[in-house]
Structures are given as structure tokens and as C-alpha cells.
Design a protein around this nucleic acid. Structure first.
Lengths: 225, 225
DNA sequence: CACTCGGAGTTAGAACATATAACGAAGGCA
DNA sequence: TGCCTTCGTTATATGTTCTAACTCCGAGTG
């Protein structure tokens, strides 16, 4: 998104642009390394610059501020998760809830701090930029597809929440699915996140049971319920 | 816990000790203010000192480091939640799952950053000190009590996870409850946390539905089995 | 009462961070 | 060839945590 000319048709990147994109990528790679090992709050532009053999302020040619870099990392993380969801749906010939759940779990465990960068503690007044909410909506869209084709359980009680959702479904952005499907997608999200969040944050660490089995049990319950 | 003599019987606190405890409390009060408005990562000992009319290093008489202060805040947060749980159980003449759920939600929404200090993003290698895991076990104990007296749903499928829990129940610390109760307690925790975590982190912000109703729906589902 | 001694607060300073400003060098392009 | 954008530099202001050394007051003891 930083290498193309603005004139509609994609110009072949000039050597300068290629170099710039490469440096940007190296900065982000090292930033991911720092985040993975010490957390996002410990991310230091200065340290990255030294690692790259540059001197401090040089990085400000590429990112206007530390916050801007972090925002772009958040965007990339969302993008990666959305791509993984799309790939899963593509491979299975349509979104499958169980497959998505395992994609999500693998993605979270592959880099816990990356998951927490998205779903962990935000700055109090944080408002995600539109580009990021768009990607989040993309992810939700795949999830809605998966929940729409889930086998239907007729004896499920009609939750009062469904009526509320029928009137508050802006977030589904025109997805053709009934309120019960919306409900299932939300619950799919919150339940799996509940397990994953506590797992990657280490809250199950000293408890002795296998988080994977708890995740699987919750997934079974979602698919059956 | 920082004001008593060590000689068994509680000595009346000397004026020095009283003053010290009072300053400690004021530091923590201002720290909570900073955390609530700017997040834990923005907590600054220097800023607190200035607010109190002190000069920077003075605070190191009271807390050995910034991390030590934060650790104590985490401990106090856990302590507060545990006390709220105990109070709820006391008031209802025994732990009640629905009451606990609402206590938890009110406690989380009263200060989202306090909730996230406990359940949000930790430092990667973070290992909670024993004092804190003990309080967490206390909380889990009340939750187990509540789940043990929940009306039993006979047609619930015997989850494979229950068998695993029967062999991995160290975390229940001798609580007299069967594996299904342990399972319910865990699920109670992860599901409510899943909703609350996303709510306090603002992920439902632009979506338009009422998080309270989602929380209530999940709680209903938990109580119905 | 006088004295000591420990705790509280101070300033100074090292080491690190973000971020801006001003300057020099090196590359692409007409 | 010459311009001009971009990159990287150093210098600097301001912020942070945290240590060290010094002062001072007050409480408990002889």
C-alpha cells in the first residue's frame, strides 16, 4: 500500500520504492521479533534502528511515530488472520466452522503476542481506523458464512437476544443470514476467544489440564448446540 | 499487610507506619487514575510524584520499581474481585452463579482497565507470584461452589473433556466436586470472559448491538446447561 | 534532656526512550 | 551536467526509570 503510484494503473516500482518497501518490511520483521519476545509495550524504535545498523531517527523516514508503526502492525495482523480465514474457506470449498476454529487457534498459538495485539489490552480511548474495522468485518463475514451452513438444531430455544439482533444487525453489513445465525457467529467468536485469550495470556499455565481439550470441547458444544 | 510488626500479636501502628501506609495508598490511588485514563503501559512514577508534590525518586522509598507497583496493583485488583465474590456468596447465603456473573460484569465495567490489568495482555514470560495465584484459586473456589449447586441437566452429553478433568484437577485444590462441575466452572469462566473481554476492549463498540444482552444470553445458556 | 539513628526527601546524574530540526551525502531524472 | 528528492546523519529537547549521595527531621533510647 505504500509502493504504488496513484495514477490508477500500477506503475512498475522504481528502485527507490523497492528499497523503501524492503526497509519497511525489515523494520516490521524486527518489530514482530521484539513484540513476540517482550510484548508490544517494550517495542523500541531505537533498538530496531541499532539492530539494523542505523541510527535512531532514521526510522522516522519510514514511520511517522511509534504509534503509527504499531497501528500498521495491528493492521497486518488483522490482514493475516483474514487471509488465513479466506484460505481455509477456499480450501474447503466454502467456510467451515470447525476448520475456521482450528485456523484461529493455530494462528493464535503461533504468536501469542500477535493475537493479544489484536484482542488484548488496548489504549483506553482507542478507536480502530476504518481500514482495520473493514478487515474485521471481512473476518466476520467468513464466520457468518460458516455459521449459516451449520446444521440446524430445531429444539434450540429461541433466545430473546435473537429478537434484539434482528433489529441491530448493522455489523453484519448486508449479510443474508437470519438473526439466529448472527447469534451463533457472535457466540462462536466470544466463546473461542474466551478460551484462547486465557490460554495465550497464560492463565491456564499452572492449572494442569490441557487447554486444547477445553477448546475442542467448546467447539463441539458450538457445533452441536 | 505492610503495617504490622512480625511478633505474632498486632502492634498498634506507629505514626511513622501510619504515614507510610497513607502515602502508599495515595500513590496507588493516583496510579489507578492513570491506568484508568491512559492504560497501564502509560503509568509513570514521575508523573505520580509530581501530582503529589514530590520529586521523582521519592517514590522509590515506597515501591522498589515500577514493576513492583504494577504487581501490587494486580494483586489488589485480584483481591478486590475475590472480596466481591465472597461478599456476593455471603449475601445470598451461598454462592449463586447468576449473582456471581453480574458481580463480575459490574466489576469489569466499573473500571475496564482494571479488568484488563488482570485478564488482558501480560508480559510474554510473565509468571504470577504465588500470592496472586492463591487469590485466583480463591475466586475459582467460590465459582466451583456456585457450579456445584447448579440444577443438574441429565441429558447433557458426557463430554470427553470431563474424563480428562477427572485426571487433571490439581487446580481445584481439593474441592469436593465432580469433573462435570469442574467443567462447568471452567466454561462459566471462559464464556463470560469471552464476552466481557471483547466488550471492555471495545470490540463491540461500532457493532450496534447491546453487549449486556449478549452477556445475559450467554449466562442463560450456561444456567440452562 | 540530649543523642543517636533510621527513614524520608532532596538533587545530581547515568542510561534509555520518543521525536524534531538542521545538515550532508547519494541516488535518480531531465 | 545539474537539480532535487530522499535517506541518513548528528545535535538537541524532553520524557522516562532508577541509583547514588547528601540533608534533615522526628521518634525512641540512654
Amino acid at each position: 500500500m505504500a509502493a504504488e503510484g496513484e495514477s490508477g494503473v500500477a506503475q512498475p516500482p522504481s528502485p527507490r520504492e523497492r528499497y523503501r518497501a524492503q526497509v519497511c518490511d525489515e523494520i516490521k520483521d524486527r518489530a514482530w521479533g521484539q513484540i513476540a519476545t517482550a510484548g508490544a509495550s517494550a517495542l523500541s524504535l531505537n533498538a530496531i534502528a541499532k539492530q539494523m545498523g542505523l541510527s535512531g531517527p532514521a526510522l522516522y523516514r519510514y514511520f511517522g511515530s511509534r504509534d503509527e508503526l504499531i497501528t500498521e502492525m495491528i493492521r497486518d495482523a488483522y490482514r493475516g488472520l483474514a487471509d488465513a480465514f479466506h484460505a481455509s474457506a477456499e480450501a474447503a470449498g466454502g467456510a467451515d466452522a470447525a476448520a475456521l476454529a482450528h485456523v484461529l487457534r493455530r494462528w493464535a498459538l503461533a504468536d501469542p503476542q500477535r493475537y493479544l495485539l489484536i484482542y488484548g489490552t488496548p489504549v483506553p480511548g482507542y478507536r480502530a481506523p476504518d481500514e482495520i474495522t473493514a478487515i474485521a468485518a471481512e473476518i466476520m463475514d467468513v464466520l457468518l458464512d460458516a455459521c449459516a451452513v451449520l446444521p440446524w438444531n430445531a429444539d434450540a430455544p429461541a433466545a430473546a437476544f435473537d429478537a434484539h439482533l434482528a433489529d441491530h444487525r448493522d455489523w453484519a453489513r448486508g449479510h443474508r443470514a437470519g438473526a439466529p445465525v448472527l447469534h451463533r457467529a457472535l457466540v462462536f467468536w466470544t466463546r473461542l476467544h474466551g478460551v484462547l485469550s486465557l490460554e495465550v495470556a497464560g492463565h491456564f499455565a499452572g492449572m494442569g489440564f490441557d487447554p486444547e481439550l477445553l477448546f475442542a470441547a467448546e467447539l463441539d458444544d458450538l457445533l452441536a448446540g
